[in-house]
């Protein structure tokens, strides 16, 4: 038990130090790598907190995809703002101290709440487990996300849709630099790994019914497939892809909301699935969400509506 304590303390210390180091880093690139590494440690911490669902989400989104998004954005900014001092300007010292003060206050309040809340902490866990049998799935997290509080999840999917709308509004599809080709070793890797990634996305989706997994994790892995395709120029979006892309972005919202309308038409409450077929309803909705989330992530990575102009060819 002492060793567990040591393990946990080292882990906590590493997370705090990494968070500070990522904030204090002078170099943008260093900041990003530190942030990616922070994702690894945070995933381990979620495991230690007995929250494998969150750890899985962190593994799927936190380090790999977020790292890629940050890297691309950083490079894009640097490419644009070559010689522009404002691009590398750091926030003012006053802002830094203000944020530090705010964080200190919030941390103090958090500590106070930890002391003040009743023990054992009241929660809805018992209610969830009492109703799990009629939810259609065996994983309580999926039961909450796709059945008991499905409306929340629907609105979360809408948030993703709103993000992609705003990004398409702002994005500039013009290729901003000559990028290197990745070479034959990469293509061998892609040929081998991409199909397996698709399989694993399906596996995670299926897993969500009874174990940690589900549409968000599966969507993130599938989205990574899209990102690799884009990075390796295995797929280059053109103006003709705009409508299909919009369709898939909207699929999650339309599918989920459509399921709600269908349940209303059946005479049930909004998103009240017929109990005997709840599992099928949930799986179909989750499948649509997976595809939509994956496309949205890849679309966000691409960063704009694909243009009609051909991207500039790389040199080799």
């Amino acid at each position: 038990m002492l060793l567990w304590l040591v393990f946990d303390l080292v882990l906590i210390g590493a997370i705090v130090w990494l968070a500070w180091a990522a904030l204090a880093a002078r170099d943008g690139f260093e900041m990003i790598v530190l942030f990616m590494v922070l994702g690894l440690f945070v995933a381990l911490a979620w495991v230690r907190l007995q929250a494998p669902d969150v750890a899985l989400a962190e593994a799927a989104v936190g380090s790999g995809i977020t790292g890629a998004l940050l890297l691309k954005t950083w490079r894009h900014r640097r490419g644009r703002a070559a010689g522009d001092a404002a691009a590398d300007a750091r926030p003012s010292r006053a802002l830094g101290f203000g944020v530090m003060g705010l964080v200190t206050v919030l941390t103090g309040m958090l500590a106070a709440v930890l002391v003040l809340i009743p023990r054992p902490a009241p929660s809805l866990a018992e209610t969830v487990f009492a109703n799990l049998a009629v939810s259609g799935v065996d994983n309580p997290v999926t039961a909450v996300l796709l059945n008991f509080r499905a409306y929340d999840t629907l609105l979360e999917v809408v948030v993703l849709f709103a993000v992609v709308v705003v990004v398409w509004l702002l994005g500039d599809a013009e290729a901003d630099r000559r990028a290197p080709r990745l070479g034959s070793i990469f293509f061998g890797f892609a040929r081998l790994v991409l199909p397996v990634m698709v399989l694993i996305a399906g596996y995670l989706l299926w897993l969500g019914g009874f174990a940690p997994g589900g549409a968000f994790q599966a969507g993130a892995v599938l989205g990574a497939v899209g990102i690799v395709l884009l990075l390796g120029r295995l797929y280059t979006p053109t103006a003709a892809d705009r409508l299909p892309a919009r369709l898939v972005f909207g699929l999650g919202t339309v599918g989920f909301a459509g399921a709600g309308l269908a349940t209303l038409a059946l005479g049930n409450a909004f998103l009240g699935y017929p109990p005997e077929a709840a599992k099928t309803w949930i799986l179909v909705i989750e499948a649509m969400l997976t595809v939509s989330i994956a496309a949205t992530l890849a679309g966000l990575f691409f960063g704009a509506a694909p243009s009609g102009r051909p991207t500039r060819e790389s040199d080799r």
């Binding site: 990745l182 070479g183 070793i185 990469f186 890797f189």
Partner: peptide, 13 residues
């Protein structure tokens, strides 16, 4: 297997 594949590819890249 996938870690080895990934690390070989990333090492090369």
């Amino acid at each position: 297997f996938f870690v080895v594949l990934a690390s070989a590819t990333s090492g090369h890249l």
